[in-house]
Design a protein around this nucleic acid. Sequence first.
DNA 1: TAGTTGAGTGAACGGGTGTTCACGGCGTGT
DNA 2: ACACGCCGTGAACACCCGTTCACTCAACTA
Lengths: 209, 209
Amino acid sequence: MAESAALTRQEQKERTRAALLDAALELSQESGFAQISLRQVAKRAGVVPAAFYRHFASMDELGLALVERSFATLRRMIRDAQRDPDVFAHIIDAAAEVLVETVKVNKAHFAFVARERVGGSQAVREAINHELDLFVSELAVVLARLPNIENWSSDDVQMVARLFVRNMVANAEEVVEMPDGRPDLEAKIKEGARRQMRLIVLGFEKWRS
Amino acid sequence: MAESAALTRQEQKERTRAALLDAALELSQESGFAQISLRQVAKRAGVVPAAFYRHFASMDELGLALVERSFATLRRMIRDAQRDPDVFAHIIDAAAEVLVETVKVNKAHFAFVARERVGGSQAVREAINHELDLFVSELAVVLARLPNIENWSSDDVQMVARLFVRNMVANAEEVVEMPDGRPDLEAKIKEGARRQMRLIVLGFEKWRS
DNA sequence: TAGTTGAGTGAACGGGTGTTCACGGCGTGT
DNA sequence: ACACGCCGTGAACACCCGTTCACTCAACTA
């Protein structure tokens, strides 16, 4: 059975674990994580159901691991975007662009987060909302340095950050629901996101308390 | 003829149907509509599983009936609010107030819509998103008559309506997730919704194209 | 090299699932 | 007063589910 190279015990275990995570993510795209079964996941991963327990104590635990993995890619998206000088120059156009593109590439992860944020088990829901709260706070720090905002109360900044993240999530949901190979729809979503953000930013100047 | 007990055949049937709908709504509050079973619903409704089929061909069909029922209460909320002269006078404060109060009273229906909008079966999801699109269009008609908006393009008006409905849905989700008997949290959500709407409205004046 | 460890196996269990079917009983139209 | 129609019944079916157990056998360790 030695295909490529001899695998150490640890490598093999990690590989199976990853196969289980991939299988679960894949299956949950079709019907939602909450409705897939341990047996389906094991089967798709090419493993007997009992072997599942060598890696996770329950489907809930696997779900939490998936949350972590999904938010890791989300954070990477933000980090990469901040490094790009074009993004800072035309922040709104870039944000819409980056959002749609990244969601398209990591569709499975975003679909998982969007769905399970409200539809999942209690534990998974709480984990996702906690991560999103962290995300709002991170964005608030960035926003607080913008010209029109620098002397707002921190409550107000937090509010605006929530407004943005909320819309980001909603736009991500739209991209996820979007059928493949429809560049027209994609452009429409991008344009919609851009205009919504511009409208919100326009309100910045006149805001008081 | 008999005033108290005797029920006509039709009345009795409708009563069982309603019991099934109520049972499903109740159970879906605890764990989500997609994870409850036909047998659980029948049991809670006080009926044998096979009897279910006298009223619905499948759980999916029952789900669609629930979507209809839930949006009926949502529409009633808007209709009632428009009749109230106070609402037109202080439109934003009133909207936040009405939203939170109505969601609190009809928690089950809003929870159902919020969850199944993204987490439900394909058919249920599509039905809900269709209803929400109708709702956006209705709101767009109302918004188009506002002073700063009256000569916007219809695309722009639709965009703003989407922004509002999106936030309404998100705020409704928050109220639904809110534990009972926490007037402080409730006030916070209300205040957050109010400020978000004010910020968006501020952008109206300066909007072009 | 011999012994230990632990990832993966295959079978078995008890229980919940959707769906079907013949049947009983009661409101109903004749 | 009678026969019909239809809602609800209870049993049966064939599945799929999560979980357990003793097991194998290859990678590791001493």
